[in-house]
Design a protein around this nucleic acid. Structure first.
Length: 162
DNA sequence: GTTGAGCGTT
């Protein structure tokens, strides 16, 4: 049979080569100039865009680096993925999206920024809709059972420990 | 100075 090669895939796992790299897992303190400095070693960088969270004004921990040539982007991708910046191991891939979305008038129409359930005192007045499955990567943890904790034991409390 | 994973809203 013929090969199952996909051509137009823009999935996260099979990004096609492009001049635009997505850099993930960044420290929120890593700046565009830092990234520019690092990635420029592999060729001329046209632009670096650290994605900023609109409400907090801080980095969302990922960025996009535009090279002038795809081959330089490739070299940078190979060399920079796994590299450590500001104590964070970064991951570099070809971007599956090539630019920011078209600005929309009015309300923000993008995906929700995950809240991981957010403990808001059970209020539940905010958000809604995404509370049930915060993310496909979310896993229920073993419930935190304080009654099993030594430090919570009454006799330890009596001793003033905990 | 965050931490689970992550593809962007001039």
């Amino acid at each position: 049979p013929m090969s199952n090669r996909r051509r137009h895939v823009g999935s996260r796992d099979n990004p096609n080569p492009s001049r635009c790299l997505g850099v993930f897992g960044l420290s929120i303190y890593t700046t565009e100039q830092q990234l520019h400095h690092i990635f420029s070693k592999y060729g001329p960088v046209e632009r670096v865009q650290v994605v900023i969270d609109a409400k907090t004004g801080r980095s969302r921990g990922f960025s996009f680096v535009y090279f002038e040539s795809t081959e330089d982007a490739k070299a940078a991708k190979e060399q920079c993925t796994g590299m450590e910046i500001d104590g964070r191991r970064i991951r570099v891939d070809y971007s599956i999206t090539q630019r920011a979305h078209t600005p929309t008038p009015g309300i923000y129409m993008g995906k929700p920024t995950y809240d991981f359930g957010g403990y808001r005192g059970g209020g539940g007045s905010g958000g809604g809709g995404y509370r049930r499955s915060p993310s496909p990567y979310y896993r229920s943890r073993r419930r935190y059972d304080r009654s099993r904790s030594r430090s919570y034991s009454p006799r330890y409390e009596a001793r003033g420990i905990g």
